[in-house]
């Protein structure tokens, strides 16, 4: 009798645990945990177009839209930067709450080719950053993204860059909020931002 009561108790506990587990799993899926992941605060220290050192800390209070790319990339990079430019145009007065950043993963060549003219051609609000190789790698590690140099005899200067083409949203407190995967329409990025103001 005592054993049966214990068995019953265990069963109740097991079923309760399953329900709680299923419930939390459902709840986290509903929040899109796959997209947001555990909270972290990416940091960077990189030179801007004028050679001034800029750090993640100085942008606290603003949402950051961060894209890692290289200016010798005529296909993928302009698409994302065009979307960012469209978002900045459509934000209107709220544009001051958002700072778009283009982080060069090919900093030496991009500095030589001119970063300011490139970012300005898309939108004057976009700030281009190009650090040293070590600073760039540290920033990429902090954002948990990958980039790499691919030797290719047929490419300009004998190499091309492979990189994560996502657009990353950082909150005003510096926390990583989400990624917009490559090809996310500007309107979707805009409405996501507007829902956070």
């Amino acid at each position: 009798m005592r054993l049966r009561r214990l068995q019953l108790g265990l069963w109740v506990a097991a079923i309760a645990a399953m329900i709680i587990f299923a419930g939390t799993k459902w709840a986290t899926q509903g929040e899109g945990v796959a997209e947001t992941g555990p909270a972290f605060t990416p940091v960077f220290t990189l030179a801007d177009e004028e050679g001034r050192i800029r750090t993640s800390a100085e942008f606290r209070g603003k949402f950051l839209l961060v894209f890692f790319g290289f200016t010798n990339c005529p296909d993928v990079c302009p698409t994302t930067l065009s979307d960012v430019a469209q978002v900045m145009d459509d934000l209107g007065a709220d544009a001051e709450k958002v700072q778009p950043l283009f982080v060069s993963i090919d900093p030496e060549r991009d500095r030589r080719l001119g970063l300011a003219a490139y970012t300005a051609a898309f939108h004057p609000a976009i700030l281009g950053l190009a650090g040293t190789e070590a600073e760039t790698q540290a920033a990429a590690n902090s954002f948990k993204i990958f980039y790499g140099r691919e030797n290719d005899a047929a490419a300009p200067d004998g190499y091309s860059m492979a990189h994560s083409p996502g657009l990353f949203l950082i909150g005003p407190d510096g926390e990583w909020l989400r990624q917009f995967t490559y090809g996310t329409p500007a309107a979707d990025i805009l409405s996501d931002l507007q829902s956070r103001f």
């Binding site: 990958f146 290719d152 091309s160 492979a162 083409p165």
Partner: peptide
């Protein structure tokens, strides 16, 4: 040249 942008495992590259 002809290129193809490939996004594989979250990494974009553009092979010939």
């Amino acid at each position: 040249m002809l290129h193809e942008t490939v996004v594989q495992d979250g990494i974009a590259s553009m092979p010939h």
